[in-house]
Amino acid sequence: MNTEASNIDRETVASFGSEWSRFDQSRLRGEELQSLFDTYFDIFPWGTLPASPEGFDMGCGSGRWAALVAGRVGRLHCVDPSAEALAVAERRLAATPNVHLVHASTDTVPLEAASQDFGYSLGVLHHIPDTAAALKACTRLLKPGAPFLLYLYYRFDNRPLWFRALWRASDLLRGGISRLPERLKFAATDALAAFVYWPLARLAGLVEKLGGRPAALPLSFYRNTSFYTMRTDSRDRFGTPLERRFTREEIRSMMEGAGLRGVRFSQGEPYWVAVGVKAA
């Protein structure tokens, strides 16, 4: 990676390299992988792309989303600042010839401005010091009229006060766990997956079966996922040093400030997934 990269947190990059090396997503497949993919991409305007489009996955990590996007496009640039993460993605995407792995950050990616037909960044830019600048760096790569799909952690702007208070308490826990040595960090986040994620997710599943509203409960998003996904996301959520959160309107403002128009949001979990189109 270019040593001049400035808009990264090196501890966070190293943390994700460790995470994807352990949770390489090889066990995430079939219906669960497709269901999670659809959750993020259901608002993406595939039908507006040109024939054999060229685009980018900013912060590709293990390549789990790229594995499903690559078959729909002509060329896909998988960009990540972590060499460890790219090594995982390389193994996963070895049989996918139209994928190009790029070791770079948002501010050093070696793609020409206005050269890409689409782009996406899912669960990445909220782990960057200046999220707005990173988003502008992404949209700079897009051709006019090209769509960009974005997922950023939400600031619980659609949740009650008790839910926000619960998150504040959990964030204090994240601050401690994220500083632990890697072995202890994995042990702690696995314990959270087993004793917090799993019971709350299964409770939400029971509420759903009984005709209730599971979305009102914490961690209800995981009610139909595997324990492997819970372990992965627990490590992501509690083991990552840098995390930022945004309201829906803050995300809209950042996207519009980055030159995206027609911004619209997915109405379901996870919050907030949004898509916009690069202005002419």
Score class of each variant (00 low, 15 high):
225 T>D: 01
105 S>P: 01
153 Y>H: 12
233 D>F: 00
257 G>S: 07
237 R>Y: 00
114 A>E: 15
231 R>S: 08
61 G>M: 07
115 S>Q: 14
102 V>T: 11
145 G>P: 09
231 R>M: 14
109 V>I: 10
242 L>Q: 05
144 P>I: 07
106 T>D: 05
175 G>E: 13
93 L>G: 03
143 K>W: 07
50 P>D: 06
204 A>H: 11
85 A>T: 06
78 C>W: 01
64 R>D: 06
20 W>E: 05
190 D>H: 11
23 F>C: 03
29 R>K: 15
277 V>Y: 12
171 D>P: 05
22 R>K: 12
118 F>T: 06
167 W>T: 01
96 T>G: 07
57 D>E: 09
118 F>D: 04
93 L>S: 02
78 C>P: 04
85 A>W: 05
4 E>R: 07
150 L>F: 05
183 R>P: 09
158 N>A: 12
228 Y>K: 11
249 E>W: 09
133 A>T: 00
206 L>G: 15
271 Y>I: 01
79 V>W: 06
132 A>N: 03
159 R>Q: 14
201 A>V: 08
42 D>Y: 10
140 R>P: 02
39 T>N: 15
214 P>T: 06
190 D>W: 02
213 R>P: 00
165 A>G: 07
166 L>F: 13
92 R>I: 08
154 Y>K: 10
149 L>R: 04
215 A>E: 11
155 R>E: 15
137 A>M: 02
135 L>V: 09
130 D>R: 01
25 Q>T: 15
255 M>G: 03
155 R>V: 09
264 R>P: 01
242 L>T: 11
70 A>F: 09
116 Q>F: 01
59 G>S: 06
234 S>Y: 04
47 G>C: 10
74 G>D: 13
111 L>H: 00
97 P>D: 07
277 V>N: 00
215 A>Y: 04
143 K>Q: 14
128 I>K: 03
11 E>L: 09
131 T>G: 04
211 G>W: 08
39 T>F: 03
125 L>Y: 08
194 A>C: 10
112 E>L: 09
224 N>G: 13
278 K>Y: 14
73 V>E: 13
240 T>G: 07
259 G>F: 09
63 G>M: 01
147 P>L: 03
162 W>G: 04
139 T>V: 08
142 L>H: 05
